[in-house]
Design a protein around this nucleic acid. Structure first.
Length: 742
DNA sequence: AGCACGCCGACT
DNA sequence: GTCGGCGTGCTC
């Protein structure tokens, strides 16, 4: 057998050693060492033993053979959670296409600087007058580093080691002799960072209604019979999903197991957090993106030590190092935030399924508007489906929904942004001193073109997605590249009233002020929430009745309960409907359903007015009748016909480069390489075409799509493309290839 | 992170 | 000259 070398990452703690090192695999370990193993290796001048992760194995090391050292041994007694997460990293790498390095970084919390558990402190042992003398001596002898050190000790007798090294730019070369002379000491001190001190749980068990109890009972029965599976709770807005979650969590931690709760970042409000603390006390930990790296690391450390049972957080909380995991819960399962935007582009739902199966845990998904992916699996019987159809709060009923046809309004001479039904209802609420929310479901680049007379958006004849306006002159399909010149009149009805769609929140605010001069108006968008806490501030002000009308984008329809809101107006439902990708209808249905759920949360009945140019579109009619199954059926017909997910798996291959020619030749070479393979496997290929924003920061991007029903076949093709690109550095040197499955 | 190397000023 | 501090670069 030939010699084998392992490519190893030394811990992952420090940026400077954040790359791979090659080590020889000794004969005696050749069986045990594989990608993903945790090994012990001598490192650096002193050959200090360190932990390392094997990220690859090759027969040729690209390093001077004489200098390569051997792996010393395998770490077997590693904490179970850690090795489990490493195998999860391996799975991520295989599944989503990333390097092992990237996968490991996703899965293991990056230690920041010093080990936070025992913080190192420098303490001065000199008396004040001795210190003064030492300082003078250092100055006289021009010992600059030492002078800085003693100067700092004049201020305070103790200095954190971290500060000394990073801020004061002192190196161990300076400190070591000073320590040896006995002038100062280096000691480590237990650090008590922010253990959450909150009142103990006053187990306020709420009384569950029949529907809620059914779910809890079924789950309990399965759990005690050691049946682990995935449950989908489809519960209308306000049906009390959180109470059900609490009961399930309670049950699981009673067994001595641990729970991970995923919440989309935007929904992580103060209210939600307090509910969990109130029920489970200090056994809960919460992470969010505002937590510093150190605090985040601490929370993971507490989880590893078994100090907590419940971790709540966004997608990254999925990698909490729990060794006795019993349940993963994903709230608002349909949210886009569960898909990672960076490599590995994993979906939290899929990773949660994998992790749950690895640790014999259950998975619970909850949503008012389940993703088509989850609902499909539920209908197939892969998930257990539960329904919550009633609002949990007594006397609160679902809102009445009205659809206002903007085409009709225009025909009858109303050129304002308020349809007559919406205007009437707004006047009525203002008179009654009830509150109104105006919702603009705008999102990203909504540069599509539609007709104000007939409501049709101009679509690609091959892909059935809207075309995107480029430079006001041409319309382009971002799936296949189909291009037509911008027409002067509507292709369906000949009306000249066609234009690109898009209104800003500021403009809406102005128009609302003009129409209702006496109303007090709050606006919530990126501008007004930029400063920290702005988000919460505005919502609080509104809920305390400081304004009559709240205008905003998606962010106003999440979380918060506003008992006095009895009218929700969706100004232009088409904005999310005709985005240039296949998910427009799904997103629209979700947003409308959520917006509708905001109205009438208390005894007062609520009204919702949806304004649209396409009142007959199924996403709007089914949202108006609040009929999810009907929406699902219709949308799936479209997805099946066009072979879009979840009917098929869609592999998106993105090529990016600063060099446009290299990008074009690389993407075309891959397309040419893939075509015969795809034909053999019956895989449909589309493109390469330009990405929706072709050039960002001088980087050009092209996209190639592959569609097939079978995930594994696409993974196989992806791996072949990977091999192809590695063998052709001439073509791919300047081009980055990224894969994304959906 | 931790170690050593080489530069540079200070002192016998 | 040489001693010793200081900053930098490398570690398979």
């Amino acid at each position: 057998m030939t010699e084998q070398y392992a490519r190893i990452i030394i811990d992952i703690s420090h940026e400077k050693v954040d790359r791979t090192f090659d080590y020889r695999i000794p004969e005696r370990l050749s069986e045990e060492v594989s990608v993903g193993s945790l090994v012990l290796i001598p490192f650096g001048k002193g050959n200090a033993m360190r932990k390392g992760y094997v990220v690859g194995i090759t027969p040729h090391a690209d390093y001077d053979k004489d200098k390569i050292k051997e792996i010393a041994g395998i770490v077997t007694d590693s904490v179970t959670a850690e090795s489990l997460l490493i195998s999860l990293a391996w799975w991520l790498k295989e599944q989503y296409g990333s390097t092992m390095n990237q996968a490991l970084k996703t899965v293991l919390p990056v230690k920041q600087k010093i080990k936070p558990k025992e913080k190192k402190i420098l303490r001065c042992l000199l008396k004040p007058e001795e210190l003064k003398k030492a300082l003078e001596e250092a100055e006289r002898k021009n010992y600059k580093a030492r002078f800085r050190l003693f100067q700092a000790f004049m201020e305070s007798p103790m200095i954190p080691y971290e500060i000394a090294v990073n801020q004061m730019n002192l190196s161990s070369a300076t400190l070591k002799p000073v320590i040896e002379k006995g002038l100062i000491t280096l000691e480590s001190e237990e650090v008590y960072r922010n253990p959450i001190t909150l009142k103990k749980s006053h187990a306020q068990h709420v009384l569950l209604n029949q529907e809620q109890q059914t779910i809890v009972d079924a789950f309990q029965r399965d759990y005690s019979e050691n049946i682990r599976k995935t449950y989908l709770i489809h519960g209308v807005t306000g049906s009390g999903k959180t109470e059900v979650y609490m009961e399930l969590i309670d049950r699981v931690i009673q067994e001595g197991k641990q729970v991970i709760v995923l919440i989309p970042e935007i929904a992580l409000t103060y209210q939600t957090v307090m509910r969990f603390y109130g029920r489970f006390g200090s056994r809960v930990s919460i992470i969010n993106s505002r937590l510093s790296a150190g605090e985040r690391y601490d929370q993971f450390e507490r989880a590893r030590n078994g100090d907590i049972d419940i971790m709540i957080g966004p997608r990254s909380a999925l990698f909490t190092p729990f060794s006795r995991l019993g349940l993963i819960l994903i709230d608002e399962e349909h949210e886009g935030a569960y898909k990672s935007e960076v490599v590995p582009r994993y979906h939290a739902r899929e990773v949660a399924e994998k992790r749950a199966s690895m640790q014999n845990a259950s998975l619970v998904l909850g949503s008012a508007t389940p993703s088509l992916e989850a609902y499909t699996k539920a209908l197939r019987g892969e998930y257990s489906l539960f329904l919550l159809t009633e609002r949990a709060k007594k006397d609160s009923r679902m809102a009445n929904v009205w659809v206002a046809d903007l085409r009709q309004e225009l025909k009858e001479g109303n050129k304002t942004i308020f349809s007559r039904p919406l205007k009437e209802k707004m006047e009525e609420r203002l008179a009654k001193k009830e509150q109104i929310m105006l919702f603009i479901n705008r999102r990203g680049y909504a540069n599509f073109v539609s007709c104000r007379s007939c409501g049709d958006a101009i679509r690609c004849p091959h892909c059935d997605v809207t075309l995107t306006l480029h430079n006001n002159r041409s319309l382009v399909c971002h799936y296949c590249g189909h291009t037509i010149p911008m027409p002067n009149e509507c292709p369906s009805c000949g009306s000249p009233y066609i234009a690109n769609f898009g209104v800003g929140t500021q403009k809406i605010e102005q128009m609302t002020k003009k129409m209702f001069p006496s109303a007090r108006i709050l606006r919530m968008d990126l501008d007004t929430t930029k400063k920290k806490g702005g988000h919460e501030e505005i919502l609080t002000a509104f809920s305390e009745g400081e304004a009559d009308i709240l205008i905003g984008t998606q962010m106003i329809v999440k979380g918060h309960d506003f008992p006095n809101v009895t009218l929700v107006g969706v100004l232009a439902a088409d904005l999310s409907l005709y985005t240039p990708d296949y998910r427009g209808a799904e997103r629209t249905f979700q947003l409308l359903t959520q917006a509708a759920g905001r109205a009438g949360r208390d005894e007062k009945p609520g009204d919702v007015v949806i304004q649209t140019y396409s009142p007959e579109h199924y996403a709007i009619t089914t949202a108006a009748s609040q009929d999810y199954p009907a929406f699902y059926e219709q949308e799936m017909v479209f997805r099946r016909m066009m072979k879009y997910p979840p009917a098929n798996v869609l592999l998106t291959i993105q090529f990016s480069s600063k060099n446009e020619e290299a990008l074009i030749s690389a993407s075309e070479a891959v397309a040419a390489y893939v075509t015969p393979l795809a034909e053999k496997e019956m895989v449909q290929t589309i493109g390469p075409s330009e990405a929706s924003v072709y050039k960002i920061n001088d980087i050009y991007r092209k996209i190639l799509y592959l569609k097939h029903v079978n995930y594994d076949i696409l993974i196989k093709i992806r791996d072949q493309i990977d091999g192809f690109s590695e063998n052709r550095p001439d073509l791919f040197d300047l081009v980055l290839i990224q894969y994304d499955f959906s």
